[in-house]
Design a protein around this nucleic acid. Structure first.
Length: 492
RNA sequence: CGGGGAGUAGCGCAGGCCGGUAGCGCACUUGGUUUGGGACCAAGGGGUCGCAGGUUCGAAUCCUGUCUCCCCGACCA
């Protein structure tokens, strides 16, 4: 854990793995491509989940739960409508195990127990949900349906990385049905705004909002909107997506409704999701060489208090002094832990809580009590200050807000420092190779050019930003005319 | 699926070429001294060396097979 983060560093991924494992967020499991999210990592996810859930409910959504297994035939309905779905899935073919007659103590899949129709472990739930919505929708009075699901999904990825891409992961997926195209489009855009607000204000991670190119968009979507974030190694990461699905899924699953003039029409749909991948984004965006750096709003533990003492008598004295401060902090809604354990010395505790990214640490010893002060250390800048015990809880509350803001500003200025314009191909390549980050450049708008750029540079179009100004220029590869710049980057 | 690397104590590793009673560091237990940035001394506990065969008087080590994991690609709704 003493490696320095630099763009394109070869062992950045090793550093990232070590950090996640050592800080206690997660670990690889014995199951191929899967991970164990440990209590500390899960506490992070719970905080994110609760905040998102509040936002979903505030915008009129409700939660429901659909089956884990999807009959293969439902995917066939979907395939007719939208070819090109990846099909790396876990497939259930049998329903029973029996003792192996040739091999004592071993089990085999009972060949007698073959399913008539295979079941797919959901890679996403469009198929099962739209098959269900068909029965829920007859009239415009049944619309809109604004349902979200918190669930796990499985994709049989070739190569996995903790949090960023695992075979099984946790996410939420919203699936909505609407009477009009305009309403569905507004929903898709609204949820993108909800995500952006969450990621920026809760996770302190600035994002670019935009629309995906045809190549990059969700198969089956008319438009895919996304938020893109920049990591400290110069690579981009898609932090969330929201799809305007048009009537594609309604047609595939035959979901029609009668409008006010009693005319039958297919419903309009959206879907949107974010996953535990956001935890990976959080780690890669804010961490430093001492470990995790968590924004206060998301940190499972915001303040840790470490007593420095010799003997039980001193500890008792310190505890007595600290207890009212703990009560005050709790009353202010701040999570706090008083670590008076005797199995580690202060220096060990300092390092350990830094590794875990606890935003504020307070150290207090006999010396401080004489002076009526405590030492406050902030995780983001590692500054240490001696603060009077009078009103210290309130001081900490304000410091937490400041840290939250500072992390966001820091990430924003990092992104500003790593966003460039490129006007020629050579410039484009050298920016990607030498600096990393977002490269804003002209593109002629064709799939072929996009593919070719990807092959040659490994960079993809992350999005066409909503706020990209009209500007005539020439495509960096072909020289053909272009009307606005798009955002390129190498990505996770 | 291609190319590389690794499976030996809870964790991190050495030993392997050259077969001969299973090692080191951290962690853990007990006792003592310590405690303001990852303490020290002493005494302990813990492993059928990934799995299955084979060679041998004897295998962590040699041979054959097999499974798993990690990294780089391909893949990634």
């Amino acid at each position: 854990m003493s490696k320095v983060i630099t763009p394109q560093e070869q062992d950045y991924s090793q550093w990232y793995n070590d950090l996640i494992i050592k800080s206690g967020l997660a670990d690889y499991s014995a199951v191929r491509g899967c991970m164990v999210i440990k209590p500390y990592g899960y506490a992070l996810w719970e905080n994110m989940r609760d905040e998102l859930d509040r936002k979903f409910k505030a915008t009129g959504h409700v939660n429901a739960y659909f089956p884990l297994f999807v009959p293969k035939s439902l995917f066939e309905a979907e395939e007719k409508n939208a070819e090109g779905f990846a099909k790396e899935c876990a497939v259930v073919t049998h329903y029973r195990l029996v003792a192996d007659p040739d091999n004592k103590g071993k089990l085999i899949v009972d060949p007698e127990a073959k399913l008539e129709e295979e079941l797919i472990v959901r890679p996403t739930s469009e198929a099962i949900i739209w098959n269900t919505y068909k029965n829920w929708i007859q009239s415009y009075r049944d619309l809109p349906i604004l349902v979200n699901q918190w669930a796990n999904v499985v994709r049989w990825e070739m190569r996995t990385r903790l949090f960023l891409r695992t075979a099984e992961f946790l996410w939420q997926e919203g699936h909505t049905a609407h009477a009009t195209s305009q309403e569905a489009m507004a929903e898709a855009r609204l949820m993108l705004d909800v995500y952006a607000d969450f990621v920026e204000n809760f996770m302190a991670l600035p994002v670019v909002k935009g629309v995906k190119t045809e190549n990059e968009r969700f198969a089956g979507a008319v438009d895919t909107f996304c938020i893109e974030a920049l990591m400290q190694d110069g690579k981009a990461l898609q932090a969330g997506t929201s799809h305007f699905l048009g009537q594609n899924f309604a047609k595939a699953f035959d979901v029609k409704f009668s409008d006010q003039s009693n005319k039958l029409d297919y419903v309009w749909a959206t879907s949107w999701g974010v996953s535990t991948r956001l935890i990976g984004a959080l780690v890669m965006a804010h961490s430093d060489n001492s470990g995790l750096v968590l924004p206060p709003k998301i940190a499972p533990l915001q303040v840790v208090i470490v007593p420095i003492y010799k003997g039980d008598e001193q500890l008792g004295m310190i505890t007595e002094k600290v207890q009212p401060i703990i009560n005050e902090l709790k009353a202010l809604g701040i999570s706090v832990k008083y670590d008076s354990s005797d199995n580690a010395r202060p220096g060990w505790k300092f390092a350990e809580y830094e590794l875990q990214g606890v935003p504020v640490r307070m150290a207090i010893g006999a010396r401080d009590i004489g002076n009526n002060v405590a030492e406050i250390a902030r995780r983001d800048t590692k500054e240490k200050m001696s603060i009077s015990l009078e009103g210290i809880a309130f001081y900490i509350k304000e410091l937490l807000d400041e840290i939250q803001l500072n992390l966001f500003e820091k990430a924003k200025s990092y992104r500003a420092d790593h966003t460039y314009n490129a006007d020629t191909w050579d410039e484009f390549i050298s920016l990607l190779d030498e600096k990393g980050g977002f490269v804003s450049a002209h593109w002629d708008g064709t799939n072929e050019t996009e593919e070719k750029i990807k092959d040659l540079s490994k960079a993809t179009i992350r999005c066409i930003p909503f706020d990209a100004p009209d500007e005539s220029g020439k495509c960096i590869l072909t020289g053909n005319p272009s009307s606005k710049r798009v955002l390129f980057a190498r990505a996770y």
